[in-house]
Nucleic acid binder design. Structure first.
Lengths: 133, 133
DNA sequence: CCGGATTTGTACGTATGTATT
DNA sequence: GAATACATACGTACAAATCCG
């Protein structure tokens, strides 16, 4: 943690992201506790938590109160064919939508708009859209 | 701010979200400064900032250092037709991707994967995907 | 264009509550 | 029930970017 040009929490996020990608922390495994990361990297808990928030917002880890953060396993994606003149919008959900769909923070939604009006909402990490041309 | 069952920062986020949606804070307009919000709602600056972070992550506001947060105007979306056997993945970008594409935090990306390999990346709030059936 | 005032960003500390283990 | 771990929320200080006269 010597680079002084970049915020500490981003440097730590980069470090942890590498370890997730290179398999040091495999999918489903727990990260060290916030306190352990504080001790290991000599940073305050707030800095640690900000780094973890970055990774959560990238969809890389899951956080649960009382339990250590875990590396998010890639969920199985179902095919979602676009039909007819449907249009598809990707965006972040409102908090209500997130709660209703039981989504984790940091996961976008896909909103499929139908011609006659109305729309369906999908967790973006659980579907894969394919053209039906 | 009387409801004690919900965190203060979420209650404040709900309040500000309402005012954005109902037009009290129109698109492009600045929100009150963090200090003004502290005074008005009798909360610490950290609580204010967490509420603003919620709205930023929902794509509702933009934050810029040194300048007050502003209501994000809906960017004009370009049509993005899905062709052939292309597949489309929606997800949050890594920080590098976000910087390379000059995206604001809280905006998902659409990754279009081509049959032969390779993929294109789009800011999800700047494109609208349509089926080409 | 400069410089001060304002505003947001980073980083630390402390205390207490709540969920999980 | 106890220990562990994360969540909320208050505070302080200083840095960096923007704004404005």
């Amino acid at each position: 943690m010597l680079n002084s040009y970049e915020p500490l929490y981003l440097q730590l996020a980069d470090l942890l992201r590498e370890r997730i990608i290179d398999g040091t922390f495999p999918a489903g495994s727990p990260l060290p506790s916030e306190q352990a990361l504080c001790d290991e990297h000599r940073q305050s808990r707030m800095t640690i938590r900000r780094a973890l928030a970055v990774l959560r917002d990238e969809g890389l880890i899951m956080k649960r109160r009382g339990a250590p953060s875990t590396v998010r396993p890639r969920p199985a994606r179902k095919a979602l064919p676009l039909r007819g003149e449907q249009r598809l919008i990707s965006r972040m959900p409102s908090r209500k939508e997130r709660i209703q769909l039981d989504l984790d923070p940091g996961v976008p939604v896909l909103e499929v708009r139908h011609v006659g009006g109305g729309s369906d909402l999908y967790a973006a990490d659980r579907v894969e859209v394919l053209s039906t041309i």
